[in-house]
Design a binder for these strands. Sequence first.
DNA 1: TCCTGGCACTCCATGGTCCTCAGTGCTAAT
DNA 2: ATTAGCACTGAGGACCATGGAGTGCCAGGA
Lengths: 337, 337
Amino acid sequence: MLDERKLAVLRAVVEDFVNTNEPVGSKALADRHRLGVSPATIRNDMVALEEDGYITQPHTSAGRVPTDKGYRLFVDRLSSVKPLSSAERRAIESFLTGAVDLDEIVARTVRLLSQLTRQVAIVQYPSLTRSSVQHVELIPLGGQRVMMVVITNTGRVEQRVIDGLGEIKETAVNDLRGMLNRAISGLHLGDVPDAVEDLPSQVPPEHRQMAVSVLSVLLESLVERHEEKIVLAGTANLAAVDFAASLRDVLEALEENMVLIRLLGEAKDPSMLTVRIGAENFHEGLRSTSVVSADYGVGNQSLAKIGVVGPTRMDYPGTMGAVRAVARYIGQILAGQ
Amino acid sequence: MLDERKLAVLRAVVEDFVNTNEPVGSKALADRHRLGVSPATIRNDMVALEEDGYITQPHTSAGRVPTDKGYRLFVDRLSSVKPLSSAERRAIESFLTGAVDLDEIVARTVRLLSQLTRQVAIVQYPSLTRSSVQHVELIPLGGQRVMMVVITNTGRVEQRVIDGLGEIKETAVNDLRGMLNRAISGLHLGDVPDAVEDLPSQVPPEHRQMAVSVLSVLLESLVERHEEKIVLAGTANLAAVDFAASLRDVLEALEENMVLIRLLGEAKDPSMLTVRIGAENFHEGLRSTSVVSADYGVGNQSLAKIGVVGPTRMDYPGTMGAVRAVARYIGQILAGQ
DNA sequence: TCCTGGCACTCCATGGTCCTCAGTGCTAAT
DNA sequence: ATTAGCACTGAGGACCATGGAGTGCCAGGA
């Protein structure tokens, strides 16, 4: 059905349209690409491609524009991820060195990614559930309050204040802290609930109430805020694009954390690239955008995702290269910490 | 120079232009406002107002548009802060109750403010320097590393990992922790540097190295990241506005943390409203925007600022009302914590 | 059988012209 | 000091003509 040359034509259409943002015609294609055939032949191929839904005409007597299906085929079979230039590599290095804590790593990463791709970048904080507990600290704050701090091996810190515990004995807090750390430090967060299940029974009755409160907050903090924390940069790059949907819709969608989370989707293997094109994003306002995302992590364990949102007519090879490179680099940074 | 009626005309021009976003003419003014005079008279007043630079004509035979100077006068003398409707009050209450920690308070506040004003909202985290130390915790992480957590009375938590301390003695860490807390808990952060100055001399020589490292990180964490942390929401609302400068410039400016910090400016008294109009913001890309900001804090001590960024043609009384109300409300929440 | 040159056709984009209309400034009258 | 009247101005919309990029189709050639 689709022979080599038709695919080459499709590739050329996508590349030209991405460059010029104007419907591309048969003559322009014959001029700019060495397809070795005349415009008339290209026209015939275009008719076939249009019948199969890969390209479309905005109106008669205009050139062709790729459809979502066309981009899909392009990404799947007609393009390869573009490696970064050495200048870009250097940019990554200099951007991420010198970050002192996780917040800063994430903040710098998202800026870096948006600058590399000239699009909107999204970075998800390392998932709690897939990391492990390094240390739990309990700090009496005076009054009836205790602060709990959970530190994970990915440098993420979760803190909560627990109130209304009744009178607090310093020694009881210390005992509980020791018990907790013996029970769960080193464990994957997913395994924590099981590990603490019978802790209360080991606590003297007069402090059991406190232990239960602390544990319930601990479990809640592990479950609840999973992958909630997401950072975003480069929205200014959207201003240059003219969307089919209104810019407002796109910006609104990007402000919804839940939308972003769904956009990045389920984690897979580190450095695995995912491309969602147009309607594949299942969001009304994002119908004319594509999302390129990748997992990052330590070793072959994925911790979270990063991604880029741009118009469907984006430079897929380049964007994919940048996303993959940055994902790998964060993995290294986190592993080195 | 400017008699009562001319001021009334200016007020009417501002109000109408804000409503309609179209240059307003003398006839429209006479119709919609009860100025008690004919269009011809209004025209004469308008000429005077234009000569003084309060309004301007986009072109001959068009209506008048307020200048920055006109908005300035309007804000200073012709308008009063509009109190919130009861529905809006209820929205504030329901929006902010149930926030569990500082991050969430800030996140909800910024969303609330952007929804109330239908503009871009900015919220600055409570300044470290103006709050006081509640507790300092030192947590050995294994290896040569210690984590330091500083908790302030405003609920803000600052944490740092300190590395390369040589061999770490549990007891030495405990001693240092006790010493630190005795020295600085309860103190304003600004007073911390003086208070810890001669701490190292009280530490046994073999652990002095560690103490010095910890203190230097402590001081650094207090000084460095002052008011750096700023959150922003509602950029989608900008899409509806057509700026003189490009939308891109505005979005770019809003992504620069330093710009935002300067935009909010120096802290003053809680609930004190500041309005910066157009070029008063001293930023090229924000020449056609205005910023309404207010301090929030506990008692009469200001902790940080919140603000709203919108087009110069914004509803100043309404925006000012919303900003002031939200600022007061956060103050209450923080005080109640 | 596939490719190509030629050709008539389509329709968008551009630019010119005309007209309307909201709004102005000015003047003379109240 | 205010107002009615009036001539004038310029933006914006409707209308039209034109040029050109691009198409589909057909007939001839490899």
